[in-house]
Amino acid sequence: MTTATPLLPPADWRDFLALTKPRVMTLVVFTGLCGMLAAPTSIHPVLGFTAILCIALGAGAAGALNQWYEADIDAVMRRTQKRPLPAGRMDRQSALHFGVGLSAFSVLLMGLAVNLAAAAILTVSILFYVFVYTVWLKRRTPQNIVIGGAAGAFPPLIGWAAATNDVATLPVLLFLLVFLWTPPHFWALALFVKTDYANAGVPMLPVVAGERVTRRQIGLYTIPMSAVAIAPWPLGLTGYVYGAVAVATTAIFAALALVVATRTTATDDLMTPEKRLFKYSILYLFVIFGALVADRWMLS
């Protein structure tokens, strides 16, 4: 005699919202908006709003598909156990349909309402996050966050392309900034949640190579990240407002990363230097992209 599988209660809107990873989406939307506002040509407010909406929907779709695929990992890790799928508030098929539908809608809307260049880059960003990072890299290599970090670096390119229907040197540098920022940002987090990754069988760098190598890699990645962050100013792509903010905030980032990189022993202080770097790295990206827009508007 077989036992019928119990039906899950219908998920409410808060569960679908949680699938989109709204906290992550905030930074994605902000960098996309700054890329758009920093462009040399203006965009109609309605089209600009539509483009940012599409970026948000695309990011949310990628987050939903990520949670659909990684439901087994999320069930093991403490910081993700309360998500809709591992908590049993939603079935995987609903998450899959939601993610696919949202992906298709965001790309079609971007292409029809804004332009094909922005829609193409949005498509690449979603596919890269889902198939390259989530499916291919995440469970196979400690370089997952290095290569996969490109997925989160696309929004400035998308925002710029939405306004200009083209890509230029500045948005490419912004892409590289986020790409190089991702490893020190994420490895700082991984250092104080490495037990979660180990229990889930995810080969994050601290689990596979140890803390010492991870700390050294945080320091090494901070060097090119710092150079790319400041580069738009001496290259004449931005003015002194961005340049001053970039130099000051990047110096603080580098100092915090140096503390983490040179730390030799783990103490019982809840990994304070790592948490400090992780929290500041989020603020850093908000401030430096905000300075980009301020520079564009103040000096134009």
Score class of each variant (00 low, 15 high):
Met1Lys: 00
Thr5Leu: 14
Leu8Glu: 06
Ala18Arg: 06
Lys21Arg: 14
Val28Leu: 15
Val28Asp: 04
Val29Asp: 03
Phe30His: 00
Phe30Glu: 01
Phe30Arg: 01
Cys34Gly: 00
Gly35Gln: 12
Met36Trp: 04
Ser42Pro: 00
Ser42Ala: 14
His44Ala: 15
His44Tyr: 00
Ala51Cys: 01
Ile52Phe: 08
Ala56Pro: 03
Gly58Leu: 10
Ala59Ser: 15
Ala64His: 06
Leu65Asn: 05
Asn66Cys: 11
Ile73Arg: 04
Arg83Asp: 10
Pro84Met: 07
Gly88Gln: 07
Arg92Gly: 02
Gln93Glu: 14
Leu96Ala: 13
Phe98Lys: 01
Val100Ser: 02
Ser103Met: 12
Val107Cys: 07
Leu108Ser: 08
Met110Asn: 00
Ala119Phe: 03
Ala120Asn: 00
Val130Trp: 01
Val130Lys: 01
Tyr133Trp: 03
Trp136Tyr: 15
Lys138Asn: 13
Thr141Phe: 08
Ile145Lys: 03
Val146Tyr: 01
Val146Ile: 14
Pro156Lys: 02
Thr164Met: 14
Thr164Lys: 02
Asn165Phe: 05
Asp166Cys: 01
Val167Asp: 04
Ala168His: 15
Ala168Asn: 15
Ala168Met: 11
Thr182Met: 10
Thr182Gln: 09
Pro184Cys: 13
Phe186Gln: 00
Trp187Val: 05
Trp187Phe: 10
Val207Met: 05
Val208Leu: 08
Val208Arg: 12
Val208His: 07
Tyr221Pro: 01
Ile223Gln: 04
Pro224Ile: 10
Met225Trp: 11
Ala231Ile: 07
Gly236Cys: 12
Gly236Ser: 13
Thr238Gly: 05
Thr238Ala: 04
Ala248His: 12
Ala254Asp: 07
Leu256His: 05
Val260Asn: 09
Thr262Gln: 14
Thr264Gly: 14
Ala266Trp: 00
Thr272His: 11
Val287Met: 07
Gly290Trp: 03
Leu292Asn: 09
Ala294Gly: 11
Arg296Phe: 00
Trp297Thr: 13
Met298Ile: 05
Leu299Trp: 05
Leu299Asn: 08
Ser300Arg: 06
